[in-house]
């Protein structure tokens, strides 16, 4: 069994790979034969109209949706299905979980655990997934809270925090697992406009200070420009155009991209 952490650093092996991915909801084919890769440490932003399949892509990586066809690899390891002797087989939950521990996700609606304090939210997975002791997990959590500017709120309940504060805690919670891949799904879309900045600032710092690979869905085009190495424009489950942010935002080739950007900028 190859160790993902090693594979992820090897040249030639993409950190995330979608191979011939098909995703249907009933009769609705959302992704049809999608192929793309994300390199180790790369930040890729998905843009495109609502309903084009961006969230579905992130949820497939997080195993929140089941693949209909094809394969997703993380660090070279098959995530949901693998090819065994020419047959497409479901990867057992235990093995899946070994791979997903390297993946963190931040949701649009934060999804903090309301029955736990801020600190408890952050140490939950380090204690019960990574097997850290409290003596190890708590200082680490406190350092992360410091980083996201929430150190003074460690004993608060999520319900006592503003949306921006909750989202910063959710970011700290994802980082507490030392993820190698971070998935960000419209993490500022549910926030009041005046709270968006504080969350984006935290994310930009993390992008600068770490080499975590990131797959980002956002409507904040300036943020996308600042953090992305590559931007992929989606429409109807297909990559319409991709490239460096300067190119996509300044001189998009596709008519669809031009129309989309005109509408959102």
């Amino acid at each position: 069994m190859p160790d993902n952490a090693d594979n992820a650093g090897q040249p030639g092996i993409p950190h995330i790979e979608f191979r011939d991915v098909v995703k249907k909801f009933g009769d609705n084919t959302v992704l049809n034969d999608l192929n793309f890769t994300v390199a180790k440490g790369e930040r890729v932003t998905l843009i495109g109209p609502s309903g084009s399949g961006k969230t579905t892509i992130l949820r497939l990586v997080m195993t929140l949706e089941e693949l209909t066809g094809g394969y997703v690899f993380v660090g070279g390891d098959p995530l949901q299905y693998e090819d065994r002797g020419g047959k497409r087989q479901r990867v057992p939950d235990k093995v899946r979980r070994r791979t997903t521990t390297q993946i963190g996700m931040v949701f649009q609606h934060f999804n903090l655990f309301p029955n736990m304090s801020v600190l408890e939210n952050i140490i939950e997975a380090p204690l019960h997934v990574m097997g850290l002791s409290k003596a190890e997990a708590i200082p680490k959590a406190e350092a992360l809270l410091e980083k996201v500017g929430m150190a003074d709120k460690r004993d608060f309940n999520p319900s006592q925090l503003s949306g921006g504060q909750q989202q910063r805690v959710a970011i700290a919670r994802a980082l507490a697992m030392d993820p190698e891949v971070l998935l960000l799904d419209e993490v500022t879309s549910a926030l009041d406009p005046e709270l968006v900045g504080e969350v984006l600032t935290v994310l930009k710092d993390i992008a600068e200070e770490t080499d975590i690979s990131m797959l980002i869905v956002t409507h904040e085009m300036q943020f996308a420009r600042d953090v992305s190495d590559r931007v992929m424009m989606f429409d109807e489950g297909r990559i319409v155009e991709e490239g460096a942010p300067e190119k996509i935002f300044s001189s998009p080739e596709s008519q669809r991209t031009q129309d989309f950007l005109r509408a959102v900028l």
């Binding site: 997080m62 195993t63 929140l64 939950d93 979980r97 997903t100 521990t101 993946i103 963190g104 996700m105 949701f107 609606h109 999804n111 903090l112 655990f113 939950e124 997975a125 019960h128 997934v129 919670r173 994802a174 697992m177």
Partner: peptide, 16 residues
């Protein structure tokens, strides 16, 4: 219990 709670647990790889 909201669906997002189950999803957050999955995202943290918490055992069932």
């Amino acid at each position: 219990v909201a669906k997002g709670q189950w999803e957050a647990a999955t995202a943290l790889s918490l055992p069932v």
